[in-house]
Structures are given as C-alpha cells and as structure tokens.
Amino acid sequence: MANGKFVAYYRVSTARQGVSGLGLDAQREAVTRYLNGGAWESVGEFTETETGKGADALARRPQLRAAIELCRKTGARLLIAKLDRLARNVAFIAGMMESKVGFVACDMPEANELTIHIMAAFAEHEAKRISERTRDALAAAKARGVVLGATGPANLKRNIQDRQRAADEFAANLARTITSYRTAGLTQRQIVEELNRTGVTAARGGRWTLGQLQRVLARLPSSIPV
C-alpha cells in the first residue's frame, strides 16, 4: 500500500474551468483513488488556472513552482491526477527531472520519470512529422485537381476516392505512434487525450474524439493492437 508525504497539484486550462470546477473534481477523484486509504500525509494542495501558451511552462505556473518548492522542503512526492496535467514537452519534463522532485501521474502510476521523458520526446517528434506529412498529402491532392470540400457531381467520385486514399495514408502515418502508445499501456481514451495534448490534429484538422481514433484503428493492419 502506498505511503509517505505528498503534495497534490491540479491544473485547469482556462479561468472559466477554474471557476466552474470543470475537470477539477475528476482530478481530485483520481488522486483519491490512487491514495486508496494508504498511509499518506498530505502536506499541501495547489490548483493552477493556466491561460495561453508560451515557451516557459513554469513561468506560467506559479502554483506548480510553489508545489515543487514545498516538495523539496518536506521531502514529499508530487501527485498529478493525469499525465497531461504535467507533461507538456521535452524541455518541461527535463526541467522537472532536474528539480529532483519525485512525482506520480495517477492515471499512469507505473510510469517513472525516464518513461515519461521518452514518451514526451517521442510525442513531440511525431506530432511535428505527422503535421508535415498531412500538409504534404493535402498539397498533393490539390495538385491532382481535387477541389477540397467540393460536392458537385463532376468532382464527387474523384473526391470520394481521394478521401479514402488520404484516410488510408493518414492512418498509416499514425501507425507507429499508436503502436508506441499501446505498447506503453495507454487505453484508447488515453491515446485520444495524448494526441490532443501533443497537438496532433485529426484527419480534418480538428481535435480527436474516441470515434475518430476508432475509425483510424479500423484502417490499420490487424497486427496493431486496438
């Protein structure tokens, strides 16, 4: 059974979410489930309302800085409800590792700092490559004369064929990423969250949903676990 000192850190992305509690209750529940009645001593709880983006994540998160400092002073472990509440990019994870503060993501408690660092590096690299390949595929379709979004009779059949081809290519480009996430033990819902977190857009440029991921999985070879 888990034991020791802990500092809980929760983060919501907008002021509206911070006021409404959207997502905050779920994060607290995840931490409670992880503790599960163990011999833990709470030495602090911090809630961050983060707005906007920037290169320096810690500069935008005074509550996280305070939580890390309290962990240093007390020897406590930092608890985060979900991995995506902490792991934003490689540089940020590297900074956390250098802080010498132990942390646990309650949705992936078996993942250590090295595992998370590797996942962040891979996700950051793959997000860039997938975006580039998707942009190139759309440019190639346009060069073939496909009028994207057109539904007229003269263009309908060709558009359907090109959409099917583009969907197959898009799924193939994601195969390695999805395989790595499944190997790391992520569920389909966690994969959706990770794709959205790392900035990988869905086939039509929007955010991922579980249904969209399942349609991509249906186009992948049967050797890839779904």
Rank of each mutant, 00 (worst) to 15 (best):
R28T: 03
T14C: 06
D107C: 10
E169C: 07
A202W: 08
A218I: 08
I160K: 10
L70Y: 00
Q161L: 07
V192M: 10
R28W: 04
R219N: 06
Q214K: 13
R85H: 06
Q188A: 13
T134V: 13
I160V: 11
R11Y: 01
V101Q: 01
N155A: 09
R176E: 07
Q161T: 09
R11D: 02
R88S: 02
R28Q: 12
G23H: 06
G149E: 07
I116L: 14
L210Y: 10
L186Q: 13
I191M: 15
G185V: 02
H125A: 14
Q190S: 08
P221M: 00
I116R: 14
P225M: 00
K5H: 12
L148M: 10
A2N: 13
Q164K: 08
S223D: 09
A120D: 05
V226A: 13
A143M: 10
N155D: 08
G18W: 08
G4D: 02
V19T: 14
I118F: 13
R144M: 06
L138M: 12
A127S: 14
T74F: 00
S20F: 02
I93Y: 01
A26K: 12
L220H: 01
I118A: 13
L213C: 05
A167T: 09
N3F: 11
A39P: 03
Q63N: 02
N159P: 06
M97L: 08
T14N: 09
V192Y: 05
T201I: 12
T183L: 11
V43S: 02
M97V: 13
G152L: 11
C71W: 01
